[in-house]
């Protein structure tokens, strides 16, 4: 198959493409899921980011 005689090699070739397709399908199915608008979460994130910026400044 595909000019590759060893099944364990062509299956890796096909599986690597299949895994990428799995990622695409997962990304599309969940494209709009997981958005966080909760006020408390945004406040927590803001605290985290301000601390992160301080660390980056130090670098």
């Amino acid at each position: 198959m595909l000019g590759i005689p060893d099944a364990s090699i062509w299956s890796a070739y096909v599986l690597s493409i299949a895994c990428a397709i799995l990622c695409v399908v997962y990304g599309l199915l969940n494209w709009k899921r997981g958005m966080e608008n909760d006020e408390q979460q945004i406040i927590e994130e803001r605290v985290w980011e301000s601390q992160e910026r301080e660390i980056e400044e130090s670098l």
Binding site: I17, A20, V24, G27
Partner: peptide, 29 residues
């Protein structure tokens, strides 16, 4: 930890899968 929400992680799965295939898959072939 630097992403804003799980939504970005979901979306990153899509392009991440294609990107890694294009990088390592191509390099090895």
């Amino acid at each position: 930890m630097t992403v804003k929400s799980n939504m970005e992680l979901n979306r990153a799965v899509l392009s991440g899968g294609i990107f890694i295939l294009a990088m390592t898959g191509i390099a090895f072939v």
